[in-house]
Design a protein around this nucleic acid. Structure first.
Length: 773
DNA sequence: CAGTGAGCGAGCTTCCGCTTGACTT
């Protein structure tokens, strides 16, 4: 028996049918081993190692320690049983970096004594599977090395930077993907906060022919529209700030005089159909047309996949297999119109360099697509609607271009120019079936009549409108996914969980489908971009991918790249050390507009507080940062429940004061009193517990310095097993022996002091205390 | 005045990417 291992159990049935007798197909259910999530997941002998928390011994060639994924234990056991009976093992995990790594981990886990080969295919058809069987190869260890590098970068990045955020609030996190995704949302919110809206005027005329013409030039000067103002409300060069008075003047003129048609231009255009769906474009369209969230799209698609209706839904390749192309063309011919098919099939390739393309596009599965009537009968409503979208998109992708003409009319009155534009389709092509981004085929532009240049056009009604420039729109879920995808950040299997993650951490909130950053999210972004700019750069992942490609091609070693990433100049550990050297100042992320009003926002225990001259209130969760104007802030400060700013309420809690000579300085309350911890070293601190919250770094260091001159042992007197110390503290010199103490006159000559004398003094002191008691 | 002094000092949170069910509400 030959054992074939794939990732997804959904593939087992079909592959088995193509392989026939003598083969058993089983699934790994994804990755089977990973770095330990916490040190307790390691075998006991490693738990006290300095690298135990990271799971990577960075000083020993970045050696990773892998543990079995506990949730997969039943499946792993099954694979172990099967592999012990197998005569040969074929590792048929996905044909990408992660798939190669899964195969390698399986090999480490199963330790088979029989021959092992890697088997690769890009579609599940009889011919593709047979071809794969004839082209078996060994594991590509360079590709495995690239994956392991990626894993190490993510672990080191996430586990080294996240703890820095725990001063802001518990359980906060940073990561290569999530922090950049958050940065996008947070920066958009900040743009909106700092946006200065500006008023501008527009003028539209409804003509006797029923089309509307818009004023573009006033006395031959181009009228400013919303696009002519920058985010601060400044007018760009070349645009004319058209006023209400001028608009009313033009409107009055139009009541008396007609417009003259000055130009009638027509340009032909063609439109190509959109490419077949990949994960991100499917999410986008399911959101726009069906109102699905990213999560819901994936859940519904999973059901369609399991029901055998569609190909795999987590893909970054828009390419159709031969089977898919033929299926789409056949369906167009059968259910629509063979005239809509181009002579040659259309071929699609990913525009994204980081795409791994282990799967084909998302399309109806099989050689013969299940038609919509059949689907209607078999599927639940949501599933049908998504299937219909996928079906039409796939068919449209194989249809001919749409063709038409774009017409623009220019009309004139006294050098005031107006334009009206319209589109006419001569060939709808793929648009008969599918139009991207729209529910139905909408009219684009006006219906324009046939006219001659020089014709007069009467205006029936003129509308003067007061407009306001709009701040940049917030991201929607799929828009953020698409932006990430274009930047090569994240993978199809993770898009939905990226959103869930930054939401459950309280970094962003969603209302319907639009996303906005919370104050916590904005604070985290400000901190990270200020302290670790290189790691928050939008191109960081793309750069990493280049290096991973080099590793995969054998041009660079894993060790070389990780050393660069971690140890070399600008590397993570270097930047972390530099951060720890800095005077530990709190990052102020209060937007300028609020700061100018004397307001301050800070995060305390994960909660955003608004403060002004010592008074502070909690900012309600429901208030979007964009909506916190200085006026709203005053209202909150007036009404809200006042709380103490930076109140280290539990005075016994330890607190970082800052950094001294590269060592973290922490003040805390021990069982027997306050202490200062400088690096790993403890120092006694003589303050009342209530004073701890008010300690500054300088003051605490001074006090510790003073305390360290205390209690120095000046002399030790030994006699047999007895020992008496002469010590000094801030009150003076004293003798100490066990729990007995006695003061010593200042200026006593220590050189001459004998054990016997000291012992006598201690005894007398105890006697005199007893008497008094 | 009475009576210090030294000792002690928590451990946790976290990453990305690949797969499905097994859970609860």
């Amino acid at each position: 028996m030959k054992l074939v291992i794939v990732e997804s159990p959904g593939k087992i049935k079909k592959i088995s049918s193509y392989l026939g007798n003598g083969y058993v197909v089983a699934a790994s259910f994804g990755h089977v081993r990973d770095l330990p999530a916490k040190k307790d997941d390691l075998p006991e002998k490693y738990r006290s190692e300095p690298w135990a928390n990271l799971g990577i011994d960075v000083n020993n060639k970045f050696r990773p320690y892998y543990v079995r994924s506990s949730s997969k234990s039943a499946q792993i056991q099954k694979l172990l049983d099967l592999s012990s009976k197998a005569t040969e093992i074929l590792l048929a995990t996905d044909a990408d970096r992660e798939g190669e790594a899964i195969s390698w981990h399986l090999l480490q886990l199963l330790k088979p004594k029989v021959p092992v080969h890697r088997m690769v295919f890009f579609e599940i058809t009889q011919s593709a599977i047979q071809k794969a069987l004839q082209n078996l190869r060994p594991l590509d260890l360079n590709l495995v090395g690239a994956q392991e590098s990626r894993r190490c970068v993510d672990r080191l990045y996430g586990y080294e930077i996240s703890p820095l955020l725990w001063k802001m609030g518990p359980r906060l996190s940073a990561g290569r993907v999530q922090s950049v995704a958050l940065r996008m949302v947070a920066e958009r919110e900040l743009e909106r906060i700092e946006f200065v809206p500006t008023a501008f005027i527009s003028l539209d005329s409804l003509t006797e022919h029923g089309f509307t013409a818009r004023l573009t030039h006033f006395q031959n000067q181009r009228v400013a529209t919303g696009k002519d103002f920058d985010s601060k409300g400044k007018l760009r060069d070349g645009a004319y700030p058209f006023s209400k008075e001028e608009a009313d003047g033009v409107a009055a003129q139009l009541k008396k005089h007609p417009l003259t048609l000055q130009k009638d231009e027509e340009k032909p255009f063609t439109q190509k159909p959109p490419a077949p769906f990949i994960t991100s474009s499917m999410q986008q369209e399911a959101s726009r047309k069906l109102g699905f969230s990213v999560k819901k799209s994936m859940e519904v698609a999973q059901k369609l996949y399991e029901a055998g209706y569609i190909t795999y839904m987590r893909t970054d390749s828009p390419a159709l297999s031969d089977e898919g192309t033929q299926g789409a063309r056949a369906a167009v011919g059968q259910h629509y119109d063979a005239k809509l098919l181009p002579a040659n099939p259309r071929v699609y390739a990913s525009k994204n360099q980081n795409a791994q393309e282990a799967h084909e596009a998302i399309r109806p599965s099989g050689k013969v697509f299940r038609d919509l009537q059949q689907a209607r009968k078999d599927l639940a409503d949501d599933e049908y609607r998504l299937y219909e979208l996928i079906y039409k998109r796939t068919l449209a992708s194989q249809m001919i271009d749409a063709q038409g003409r774009q017409r623009v009319l220019t009309l004139n009155l006294d050098n005031h120019l107006f334009t009206a534009s319209g589109k006419t389709y001569d060939e709808l092509g793929f648009r008969t079936l599918y139009v991207e981004g729209k529910d139905e085929q909408e009219e684009e532009g006006e219906k324009l009549p046939q006219m001659q240049v020089g014709d007069l056009v009467k205006v029936k009604k003129t509308t003067v409108k007061n407009n306001k420039t709009q701040p940049p729109a917030r991201y929607t879920e799929p828009k953020l996914v698409q932006t990430l995808e274009k930047a090569g950040i994240g993978r199809p299997s993770t898009y939905a969980s990226i959103l869930t993650n930054i939401e459950t951490r309280g970094y962003i909130q969603r209302t319907k489908n639009t996303l906005h950053a919370t104050w916590l999210g904005m604070a985290v972004v400000k901190f990270l971009t200020e302290k670790f700019p290189r790691f928050l750069d939008y191109t960081f992942t793309a750069e990493m991918e280049k290096q991973l490609d080099d590793i995969a091609e054998g041009k660079r070693t894993r060790l070389d790249y990780l050393t660069h990433f971690y140890f070399e100049e600008g590397g993570l550990s270097v930047e972390l050390a530099a951060y720890r050297q800095q005077p530990h100042t709190e990052t102020d992320f209060t937007p300028e507009i609020l700061k100018e009003a004397g307001l301050r926002i800070r995060i305390q225990d994960g909660t955003p507080l608004l403060s002004m001259s010592g008074k502070a209130v909690k900012i309600p969760d429901s208030l979007k940062p964009d909506d916190l104007t200085p006026e709203k802030a005053q209202e909150l400060l007036g009404s809200g429940e006042t709380i103490t700013v930076a109140a280290p309420a539990a005075s016994a809690q330890k607190r970082t004061l800052g950094f001294h000579e590269g060592k973290e300085v922490v003040v805390g309350m021990g069982k027997y009193g306050p202490y200062l911890k400088v690096g790993e070293e403890f120092r006694k601190l003589k303050v009342h517990a209530s004073a701890i919250p008010h300690l500054t770094l300088e003051k605490a260091l001074q006090m510790a310095e003073a305390a360290s001159s205390e209690n120095s042992v000046l002399k030790e007197l030994q006699h047999g097993r007895g020992k008496i110390q002469v010590r000094r503290n801030d009150r003076g010199m004293y003798l100490a022996s066990g729990k007995n103490f006695a003061p010593l006159q200042e200026g006593t000559s220590l050189d001459d002091l004998t054990y016997q004398q000291a012992s006598e003094m201690l005894k007398q002191h105890q006697d005199s205390r007893k008497k008094r008691a």
